[in-house]
Design a binder for these strands. Structure first.
Length: 583
DNA sequence: GCCGTTTTCGGCCCGACTGTTTTCAGTCG
């Protein structure tokens, strides 16, 4: 790697986002602004760091949404750490105005007006001019605007908080049951990023079919957690929950259910693409249906989602894929046919028991697995380095395996119990158990739990060493991140993927919604490189086995197909695979 | 700024709601 900075794609994207914001504040051409925004999202969608891609001679302009200008600016940003055009903009427009334009109800135009007329520079000075009553007198503003700014100004910081997918699940279930008593509702579903299975959700969208929108909205207003009703019209209502999370409700006619569901599911970028395809076919897609150009009365499709996609020559695209990443590529149909589903999963190869930090016994985990329809599981308790979890040393692990040998026959014909371990990759790169012990395991997954602060090279070498170890089958939660709590450690994922592919080792998608590690993009890159993916719950109690759906969601978002996932194999195939990998 | 079975210019997704307006601009998703 010859690039001078280690700029992440996220960082580079944020620079383009800042340019877009500052251009918007300057009143620039809206399409130019959009180009920077879609460029930013294209950069975020890359599975490999831009610096590495450039070093490999990859042509960035082949990426959708990146042309010669953004490619050049990316190169400069990677080399120097900054972009001259951005520096120039920062000198012209106070970058703190970006916070001002994020206050709900304000946008770039109003933020700039506040800046020019009242000298507003940031949230603090915005609050002051509102308190002084100066805002209400401005043209285009009024008393209500001034009040709403004061009310919403604290939201800006909180709005950055997104709900983790499992928390969104719980809120959605509570809302669903809240609405279940409302007889005016014929149909109800959730759309948005929640339906797409994103790891965190920025707001929740509820779509309803009803003849009496008034009654539905009244019922919505009775939901106990609502702190504020943001808007209420004939068909649309938005509320804020305590804690700043926003929920939107939209009431539609049965006839346009599919078009509305498609529209509100997004993503925005996916929809833009869908509509532009429609346009090129002389059609118009809106939330009301698919229409022939100039003929707004009778829709030709849209009662269900499949008809909408069919009208523009596409198969129905599962929500998880609607991110404008690869769902419009030519191989879509083939990929869809075999896209991984929860019912394809036959085993779970990462779980803990009372031997370490799990809450349940081996027998209880086995029974719970049978109840869930699984055919095999691996018991993978911690090794001794994880002392807080009373991790197992060689002797205790061998004792556990002996008891698995005794318990196993009890479940014969119903469940195959595999003797496994989650072995720590120690700070010095060695494994936490002896080679002799590891060689006796049916299944070894290796993980990093300590030494996150080590250098990129050190952590990468640790993982590469584990991958090369003859007894290791898999690396668990490869990046170490905890969503919204702890970033991934700095390591070279590309090298890890390459090594896993060379050694025939698996990389895990950890299904715990706090981890989802690998994430969708990383998993897509690994699978594309030929790495076998394994999706595991990392269950610490019988109830956690149900988390598998989140891992499968990540895999679906990655476009991963059944045969790319190890634990879709039948017991027989699985045992054969393990035998083949035993050196 | 990006892009191309309308291809190097001239387009670029579409509609609801609010507040401040007397017919619409700005914001939002």
């Amino acid at each position: 790697m010859t690039n001078k900075t280690h700029m992440t794609n996220q960082h580079l994207a944020s620079l383009f986002e800042e340019i877009a914001d500052l251009l918007e504040l300057s009143g620039e051409n809206a399409f130019r602004i959009r180009a920077y925004r879609s460029g930013a999202s294209a950069i975020e969608g890359l599975s490999q760091p831009v610096g590495e891609l450039i070093a490999q001679g990859f042509d960035l302009t082949t990426v959708d949404g990146i042309g010669s200008t953004l490619a050049e600016k990316s190169k400069v940003a990677i080399e120097t750490g900054s972009i001259p055009a951005l520096e120039k903009l920062r000198a012209e427009v106070p970058t703190t105005l970006r916070d001002v334009m994020r206050v709900p109800g304000l946008g770039a135009k109003k933020a700039m007006k506040l800046h020019q007329e009242l000298g507003v520079m940031d949230l603090m000075s915005l609050k002051q001019v509102c308190l002084d009553g100066k805002v209400a007198g401005l043209k285009g503003f009024g008393e209500k605007t001034q009040q709403s700014i004061l009310q919403n100004i604290d939201i800006v910081a909180k709005a950055a908080e997104r709900l983790r997918l499992d928390d969104a699940d719980r809120l959605a279930e509570r809302l669903r049951s809240h609405f279940s008593s409302c007889k005016a509702i014929q149909r109800l579903d959730f759309a948005g990023s929640y339906r797409r299975g994103k790891e965190t959700v920025g707001d929740l969208d509820i779509l309803v079919v009803s003849q009496s929108p008034e009654k539905v909205m009244d019922r919505f207003g009775e939901f106990p957690d609502i702190s504020e009703i943001l808007a209420r019209g004939d068909t649309k209502m938005s509320v804020r929950m305590t804690g700043a999370f926003q929920v939107d409700l939209r009431v539609v006619e049965e006839a346009c259910w599919g078009a509305a569901l498609q529209y509100f599911t997004g993503s925005k970028e996916h929809n833009v693409h869908v509509r532009s395809i429609a346009k090129s076919l002389g059609l118009k897609v809106s939330e009301y249906g698919v229409f022939r150009e100039g003929e707004d009365q009778k829709p030709i499709a849209g009662s269900d989602e499949a008809s909408l996609y069919e009208a523009i020559g596409l198969p129905w695209i599962p929500p998880e894929l609607r991110e404008n990443r690869f769902e419009f590529q030519k191989d879509l149909a083939g990929r869809l046919k075999d896209l991984i589903e929860l019912t394809d999963i036959r085993g779970d190869l990462h779980m803990h028991t009372v031997y370490t930090d799990g809450a349940d016994t081996i027998e209880a985990m086995a029974q719970a697995a049978i109840d869930r329809g699984l055919e095999y599981i691996a018991i993978t308790d911690h090794s001794k380095r994880v002392s807080v979890a009373r991790g197992l040393d060689d002797q205790r692990l061998l004792e556990q395996w002996a008891s698995i040998d005794r318990i196993g026959p009890k479940f014969q014909d119903r469940l195959q119990l595999l003797k496994g371990v989650e072995c720590d990759i120690l700070e010095d790169g060695s494994l936490d158990l002896s080679d002799e012990t590891l060689a006796q395991a049916d299944w070894v997954t290796a993980s990093v739990h300590f030494g996150f602060k080590q250098s990129r090279e050190e952590i990468t070498d640790r993982i590469l060493g584990a991958i090369a170890h003859r007894s290791v089958h898999s690396i668990s939660h490869p990046s170490g991140r905890l969503i919204s709590r702890r970033p991934a450690y700095d390591y070279d994922l590309t090298a890890v993927i390459q090594a896993a592919a060379e050694h025939g080792k698996c990389l895990e998608i950890n299904a715990n919604p706090q981890r989802l590690d690998l994430n969708d993009l990383q998993a897509a890159a690994a699978a594309a490189a030929g790495v076998m993916i394994v999706i595991n719950t990392d269950a610490h109690a019988v109830g956690n086995l149900e988390l598998m759906k989140y891992g499968v969601g990540v895999a679906r978002r990655a476009g991963i197909i059944k045969k790319q996932v190890l634990n879709t194999k039948t017991t027989k195939q699985m045992l054969a695979w393990l035998k083949k990998h035993k050196v």
